[in-house]
Design a protein around this nucleic acid. Structure first.
Lengths: 142, 142
DNA sequence: ACATCTCAACCACAGCTGTAGTAGCGTCAC
DNA sequence: GTGACGCTACTACAGCTGTGGTTGAGATGT
C-alpha cells in the first residue's frame, strides 16, 4: 500500500488522535499547511478506499474514522523505498546521515548500547524460555 | 529540487555513467523495468528543464548529457523528507531499521569505527594531512 | 417547528508523472 | 548521392495527487 505525502500527513494525525472525525483531523494539522475541510475529507475517503482507514461509528452526523494501517507498517514501507534508492544498503543511508551531521557519534553509541541490550534479551529468551520468541517482536510499544 | 522515482532512477544511471547519451542511459537500466527509449528521453528533457542535467556535447547526432545535481545532494534531500515524516528524528529512523532487522549490531559497530575514523581524519586534515578522507567513504559497498 | 449549522457525498479540475508514438532531420555506409 | 537508420523534438494521453466547491440530508438550539 502506497501512501502519498498528504495521505501520510493525515495518517499521522489519525495515528496520534486514535479515532477521529474529519474535522478533528483537519484541525490537528499544523495551521501553516492546513488544507480545506473538504480536501481532508477527500483524502480520508481515498484512504478508506485503499483500506488504510475505516469508519467505525457515527457521532451526531459526523463519521468517526480510525487507522487500519499502523504507523510502523507505513514507516517501514517508506524506509524500504528509500533503501532501494540507496542500493538496498542501510549503511549507505547511515553514512549519509553521518556525513550531513544529522547523526552524531553520540547517537550511534547510544543506539549500539540499546541494540546490544535487545540482543541479549533475545538471547536469554531463546535459551531459558524456548519458543516464545514471537512475543519478543512487537514488545516495547513505545 | 524535487525528483520523482523514475527521475531518480535515471539520475542513478547518469551518476554511474558519468556522461551519456539517452540510449546509453536507457540501456543501463535494469531490463525488467526498462521503459521505451522515448520515455527515457522525455524524462531526461524534464530533468534538463529542472536543471538537474545538462547537455554537454554532441557525438554524431546524439546529444551527451551529464548530471549537474550530485548524488549526494539528491540523496540528502530524500533523507530530509523521510526524516520529516519521522518527526525529524534520525533516531526513530534508526530504531525502525534495527527493529526490522535491516540494520544489525555489526553494522552499527562498524559504522561507529568508520565514523570515529572520519572524525579523527577530519580533525587531522585541518591541522596536518588534508584530503585523504575521500577514500574512507564508499568502501565496504556490500 | 423553524432557522441554522454541520457534514457526507459527489463533483470538478489543474498540475504532475509515467508512458510512448510520430515526423522529420542528420549521419553513415555504400 | 541516396537509402537506411538513429536521434531529436514534439505531441498525446491516462492515471494520480492536491485542492476545494456544491448540494442536500440530517442534527441542533430555541
Amino acid at each position: 500500500m502506497k501512501l502519498t505525502k498528504l495521505e501520510l500527513e493525515i495518517m499521522g494525525a489519525m495515528w496520534t488522535l486514535g479515532a477521529a472525525s474529519v474535522r478533528e483531523v483537519q484541525e490537528h494539522l499544523p495551521k501553516r499547511k492546513r488544507p480545506a475541510y473538504t480536501t481532508v475529507q477527500t483524502i480520508i475517503y481515498r484512504l478508506e478506499e485503499k483500506g488504510a482507514v475505516r469508519r467505525t461509528r457515527k457521532i451526531g452526523n459526523a463519521l468517526i474514522f480510525e487507522a487500519i494501517v499502523t504507523r510502523k507498517a507505513a514507516h517501514g514501507r517508506l524506509i524500504d523505498e528509500l533503501l532501494h534508492v540507496f542500493g538496498g544498503s542501510p549503511r549507505m543511508l547511515m553514512a549519509q546521515l553521518v556525513e550531513t551531521g544529522q547523526l552524531t557519534l553520540e547517537d550511534i553509541r547510544e543506539l549500539e548500547v540499546t541494540l546490544a541490550d535487545i540482543a541479549s534479551e533475545k538471547k536469554s529468551a531463546t535459551t531459558s524460555a524456548p519458543q516464545k520468541a514471537e512475543q519478543k517482536r512487537g514488545r516495547n510499544p513505545r
